[in-house]
Write a protein that binds this DNA or RNA. Structure first.
Length: 456
RNA sequence: GGCGGUAUAGCCAAGUGGCUAAGGCGACGGUCUGCAAAACCGUUAUUCACCGGUUCGAGUCCGGUUGCCGCCUCCA
């Protein structure tokens, strides 16, 4: 039984799908105006873990992740750089995929883009106008927040408080300052689509309502995204969707905690972002994954490079144990039930990856200890199966080392020769090889079973 | 100002009333090894921000105080 924290009820709840054995899930992806950073990746990894664990638990998962490829910032960017907004969007989407693939993030089933769903968006806007939830004013269409009684149920905000705060853009054409735009009229020089309300573009929140319902139905299981999207984005999505359909929208809302940069909020507007492509220049994808999974997805996470570095120790330990058990060949072993149960218990409890990792590390210790005692092939084959299964649910250590095979063969050859030299006790020579390789960032380890090497 | 989150060792981080407070990183000492690395063994929180309360029993529940963070404006 999987329990999941639902922002809507502020409680952990047993997950019961709408349709037996299926999970329909929508996660807000990027607004593709700026290059993907580690915060985006935290959200993607969170979605990835949910998808993987649901699938592991026997569910058939449909995951939709959108790209918002038209918005004010993107238009601004186009004006600044002269580059067409479509081209900017394309470039950033490509960069996202390039990095997400390296990180072994499973692809969603669809990646809808706002500009390719203008029709669905306009249909939704029309529906809202017909039902009296939206009104046309000054070339824009606004959502009338006062018409939706459930407004604020996700974020816990009250309309009165929002009015008092009144940090909403003053706009004479709105009936109420908290009303938000669902269709925005185009100013001269801005991109536009033809609509019954004049030339314009979708508001920011509407595309997620339109696309999620288009792909998953009017009611679906899980809606996710970063905690910063809770308000206003997700609150507005609920208002739009439930206003239009009169049915419940997403049943479980899942929000991952923010990732802050060295104690400061990481944000495009401050400009203090850490690009994922920069991180991956220095750190292995699995190290980044370990870093993100070592904190529960809902907790806030401070980004310090040292903490990424810390994970290299754990990464190395897991790599060692995997190397060690890979030396034992044989038929597929049986799962170690006790360990798997511990792992599942952690994951069942709102995807508690730090706890799941601790089960993996404890088991790693068991493996080293057992192997120290002497060969127990059956046990080791079981450990191999068990460890790999757990790691693969977390998306770790799945990609084969993508280094050049030729180089590897060459190093292996050098090591074979070095073993002969060592047998003749010509240590000066063998150390020379070791030192030389070290300068090439290749480190040799001599063990009872022979020598092995790794890249630094 | 309103709303929400969080406070556990040098660092990260589990802990959802009850055996001696998981796990990782780091550090130190030891075993093994030609040396090194890895691994192994041991040490590293009498105590969970603080003050009260409930209870036979609280890091865990309740009230209060303080600190930090986020949202309320574009943001994963």
């Amino acid at each position: 039984m999987i329990r999941i924290y639902n922002t809507l009820t502020r409680k952990k709840e047993e997950f019961k799908p709408l349709e037996e054995g299926k999970v329909k899930m929508y996660v807000c992806g990027l607004t593709v105006q700026d290059r993907p950073h580690i915060g985006h990746i935290r959200a993607s990894i969170t979605a990835d873990i949910l998808k993987r664990y649901f699938e592991y638990s026997g569910f058939d998962v449909t995951l939709i992740t959108n790209f918002t490829d038209i918005d004010d910032k993107l238009i601004e960017k186009e004006k600044e750089t002269g580059e067409d907004f479509r081209s900017i969007a394309r470039r950033i989407i490509d960069e996202y995929f390039e990095n997400a693939d390296k990180l072994n993030i499973k692809r969603a089933d669809f990646f809808p883009e706002a500009t390719k769903h203008i029709q669905e968006i306009q249909e939704l806007v029309s529906r809202l106008i017909e039902k009296g939830f939206a009104y046309v004013s000054g070339g824009n269409v606004y959502y009338d927040v006062s018409k939706f009684s459930g407004y604020g149920k996700l974020s816990g905000k009250k309309l009165e408080d929002l009015r008092v705060g009144a940090r909403v853009e003053p706009d004479e054409t709105k009936r109420n300052p908290v009303d938000f735009v669902v269709w925005k009229g185009a100013k001269p020089g801005e991109p536009w689509w033809e609509s019954p309300w004049g030339r314009g573009r979708p508001g920011w929140h509407i595309e997620c309502s339109a696309m999620s319902m288009h792909y998953l139905g009017e009611t679906f299981d899980i809606h996710g995204g970063g905690a910063d999207l809770m308000f206003p984005h997700h609150e507005n999505e609920i208002a739009q969707s439930e206003g239009a359909t009169g049915k419940p929208f997403a049943r479980y809302w899942v929000h991952n905690g923010r990732l802050n940069l060295s104690g400061e909020k990481m944000s495009k507007s401050i400009g203090n972002v850490v690009l994922i492509s920069d991180i991956l220049k220095t750190y292995k994808p699995d190290v980044v994954r370990l870093y993100l999974l070592s904190t529960h997805y809902r907790s806030p996470l401070e980004y310090y490079e040292d903490r990424l570095k810390e994970q290299e120790g754990g990464y190395e330990r897991l790599r060692q144990v995997l190397f060690l058990i890979s030396q034992t060949e044989g038929e597929e072993g049986e799962l170690n039930k006790e360990t798997i149960d511990k792992f599942k218990e952690a994951m069942d409890d709102d995807f508690n990856t730090p706890k799941a990792l601790s089960a993996i590390y404890s088991y790693t210790k068991d493996i080293f200890e057992t192997m120290k005692k002497g060969p127990d092939t059956k046990w080791i084959l079981s450990a191999k199966k068990t460890l790999k299964e757990m790691l693969s649910v977390l998306g770790l250590f799945e990609s084969e080392e993508d280094h050049e095979k030729k180089d590897d063969d060459l190093i292996d050859l050098l090591l074979t020769i070095r073993s002969d030299i060592r047998e003749k006790k010509l240590y000066e020579l063998s150390d020379k090889i070791r030192d030389g390789l070290k300068k090439l960032n290749i480190e040799i380890e001599d063990t009872d079973e022979g020598s092995r090497w790794k890249r630094e």
